[in-house]
Nucleic acid binder design. Sequence first.
DNA 1: TGAATTCGTTAGTGCGACTAACATTTAGGG
DNA 2: CCCTAAATGTTAGTCGCACTAACGAATTCA
Lengths: 148, 148
Amino acid sequence: MDTGEETPARLRGMPSRLLSMLATHAQRLVGDALADADARTYHYALLAALEEFGSASQAALSRRTGIYRSDLVATINELADRKLLERTPDPGDRRRNVITLTREGRRHLGRLDALLADVQNDLLAPLSAVERDALTGLLGRLLDHHTR
Amino acid sequence: MDTGEETPARLRGMPSRLLSMLATHAQRLVGDALADADARTYHYALLAALEEFGSASQAALSRRTGIYRSDLVATINELADRKLLERTPDPGDRRRNVITLTREGRRHLGRLDALLADVQNDLLAPLSAVERDALTGLLGRLLDHHTR
DNA sequence: TGAATTCGTTAGTGCGACTAACATTTAGGG
DNA sequence: CCCTAAATGTTAGTCGCACTAACGAATTCA
């Protein structure tokens, strides 16, 4: 995505475009950082949800993370293979699995947290603290409006 | 991406995440709107570049739009099949093709412009004019910083 | 009890971003 | 002038994320 030459004005000024392009850059930063820890966005989201809300069924985790339950299967497989979480049948509801964070999972999440904190700084580097707040405020409001 | 339940605080406040999620929503809006005209993001970017800067080689268009030259091949094929642009060998440099917008291509672009203007409004609906400017300003600065 | 719903899972789609490799053609440096 | 390096168009892949359809098994509800 190296626009060495002139970019069409229409694209340069269109919010949805700015958003997409910047999100692409952000995702590359995030993706590269996470890759250093053999992780992806879904891994982080899932681990974070588990730590903050505790063990839960896959369906509940799907709702909390926004990851489709179909995609969650593979994500959980990957993390379970590495013993970062455990998948056990729910005795109280035999349709469900209970997903539980392991000690190593929690440690892994800590590493990812640190990596991602750096990324946020790089991403927002040119903005002052006030501007950063303004940006996240505006983004948050838009997101609320479109998800709620 | 329907987060019906609670979202982890870490994700709710992380700029890169807000950005990605909002960009996803924006792209869905844009994608749906463009789909009504049998178009995709790449189509619009390419047509816009052609109208603003005139006929050009595929490599030049790749630089201007940020679309990889490999992906541009298919995009141009699709639009050429629909007579929205023309691909002719460049007599002055036999490595190159000259891509030229047709009259119908220009008309098609006009339709897409209208569709996308509506999408921008929907996207930014909850923001005042001042806030919209603030947002695009901040996004633009970040994008500049990361591409330049 | 029968119908509708929930849950985990498999399989497959679409789009955008990105890489590698190749043949052809052009441009540049000794 | 030649030879090497670079540019161009093209084919063929990969990857990640978002999303749909369909299924069997288990549970809830009317």
